[in-house]
């Protein structure tokens, strides 16, 4: 089965290798891995999707916690959550064939983010099945897919839940760097129409 974990890790060189190396050691294939900043300075957030037996979840989680740089692990298979993935899809299209792609994009609530004489680029956000659905339809309608780039799954618990470990740690430096951080968050503005 697919296991999905969210790991909060120290933002230091080599931490990604440690996490990746752990999965290699356990002989577990990583399906997708997204890493980025979290709400706290010095802490990165990873969403790891791994293919493994049902019973392996406990061991993967326990092993992740054995890495000194791992602060918290959440097993997302157990909880109500929101799952999203972002994909950029470049499709071969001429002015003559564009219009039906525009319709598809509309139906899938995706959008066109680049338009060139012989191609266009679609940005789509959603669960994997939605992204794969669009790709499938494009293939079926004979539009040549030139490039696909997908972020892999990002997952967040629903409802009021913040990281327990980070709260307990109460990183002293938060206040000083908060100003900088809000600037970062300001960049993430218009992403409000997910649930609609």
């Amino acid at each position: 089965m697919l296991h999905t974990f969210v790991a909060l890790v120290e933002d230091k060189p080599g931490v990604l290798t440690r996490v990746a190396s752990l999965f290699r050691r356990l002989n577990v294939n990583i399906v997708s891995l997204t890493v980025g900043r979290s709400e706290r300075p010095g802490v990165s957030r990873m969403t790891i999707v791994a293919l493994s037996s049902t019973s392996a979840g406990h061991r993967i989680m326990a092993s992740l916690y054995k890495l000194e740089n791992v602060l918290e692990v959440d097993d997302m298979d157990q909880v109500a959550n929101v799952t999203r993935e972002l994909a950029l899809i470049k499709v071969g299209a001429t002015p003559q064939t564009r219009s039906h792609i525009f319709e598809l994009v509309e139906v899938f609530r995706a959008r066109i983010v680049d338009l060139a004489p012989e191609s266009l680029m679609i940005e789509i956000t959603g669960v994997e099945s939605k992204i794969e659905g669009l790709i499938q339809v494009l293939i079926e309608s004979g539009d040549p897919i030139l490039e696909v780039s997908r972020t892999g799954r990002m997952v967040m618990r629903r409802g009021h839940h913040t990281s327990r470990v980070l709260e307990a740690m109460r990183v002293a430096a938060v206040h000083e760097s908060e100003a900088k951080d809000t600037a970062v968050f300001d960049l993430i503005e218009e992403e409000s129409n997910f649930q609609k």
């Binding site: 019973s55 406990h58 061991r59 326990a62 092993s63 916690y65 054995k66």
Partner: peptide
């Protein structure tokens, strides 16, 4: 002491 050993 090591939770990763449980049910391994």
């Amino acid at each position: 002491v090591d939770p990763a050993e449980i049910n391994k």
